[in-house]
């Protein structure tokens, strides 16, 4: 069939590409260029070769932030998936109040993590926080101060993040669970499979797409964590809970703009490695299924 109408639908992707080029690709390329310079953000950038990257590997604050960022992700991503899947299994049955429960669990995820972090700050402050006050009223004085030690502050941050986004992860698992045809469960019941066997051989393979999207988004999200840390600890005590993305902002404002773009490229690599590994893993799982 030959159609002799205007064919500019062929180029309908170009406006989107133009916007994307100017506000995403161009800065990305510029950033790669700037990472090779000493630049304070005002004067002319000075070519510096790989100086910034050498500095990065000697910069104890930056390396500490890498550790913080990775530990945050190692805590957050698995816990989020575990909590989300458990909640989805709990809610994958019909009972009265199911929709209300689902809405309640999902509600924290629609709120800005900056505002949610600020709310937890009011509740969790040692001694002055509302929870501490309420405990005091009932005669329990909470000893210790989670904000004074890096590990305990980081643990609190992970828990707050999991509390906020478990409902989001749950919704996606729930959709995956409900797309499993009832016949599959029936068939496995007929074959006399145990609950564990049904879960292993029916539920997990069918949940792969949901698992994939949750794992990938949780890896990217937790490695680029920003708002909740600013709201809750500001990166403290010291720099103990400072994430790499916060460090990038602070270096940019601290007249080390060139260096901050190099740190951003390092963060890019740190995100890309686990994402590619898990994409490969899921591809091989899908081939096997």
């Amino acid at each position: 069939m030959h159609i002799s109408t205007t064919s500019w639908h062929r180029y309908m992707a170009l406006p989107a590409f133009a916007l994307f080029s100017l506000f995403f690709l161009l800065p990305l390329i510029q950033g790669a260029g700037l990472s090779l310079t000493h630049w304070d953000g005002f004067s002319t950038p000075e070519f510096a070769g790989l100086d910034n990257f050498r500095e990065f590997f000697r910069d104890e604050r930056a390396l500490g932030d890498v550790k913080t960022t990775v530990l945050f992700a190692l805590g957050s991503a698995p816990l989020l998936n575990l909590a989300g899947l458990s909640l989805a299994l709990l809610l994958n049955r019909s009972f009265s109040g199911r929709n209300t429960t689902r809405a309640l669990l999902y509600m924290p995820a629609v709120i800005s993590p900056m505002i949610m972090g600020s709310i937890w700050y009011l509740l969790l402050q040692p001694r002055r926080g509302l929870l501490a006050l309420l405990f005091e009223q009932s005669g329990i004085t909470l000893e210790g101060n989670w904000m004074l030690s890096g590990p305990s502050a980081l643990t609190v941050l992970v828990l707050v993040n999991v509390w906020q986004y478990a409902g989001m992860t749950m919704i996606i698992y729930l959709a995956g669970l409900q797309s499993i045809p009832a016949e599959l469960y029936e068939a496995s019941a007929v074959e006399g499979a145990t609950g564990v066997q049904t879960f292993r051989y029916i539920v997990i393979p069918e949940l792969l797409p949901a698992l994939k999207i949750n794992v990938i988004t949780n890896i990217i999200g937790s490695l680029s964590v920003f708002d909740v840390i600013i709201a809750l600890t500001g990166g403290g005590p010291g720099y103990d809970t400072e994430s790499l993305s916060i460090y990038i902002m602070r270096m940019c404002y601290g007249n080390k703009t060139g260096y901050s773009t190099a740190v951003a490229l390092m963060l890019f690599v740190i995100i890309l490695i686990p994402v590619i590994i898990s994409l490969r893993f899921f591809d091989s799982m899908e081939d096997a299924a």
């Binding site: 995403f24 800065p27 510029q30 950033g31 700037l34 490695l223 680029s224 963060l267 890019f268 995100i271």
Partner: peptide, 16 residues
Amino acid sequence: CMMIPGIINTVPLYTL
């Protein structure tokens, strides 16, 4: 680019 969070290019974007 779907795998690249916005924070990666925020600084050059800021100068732009």
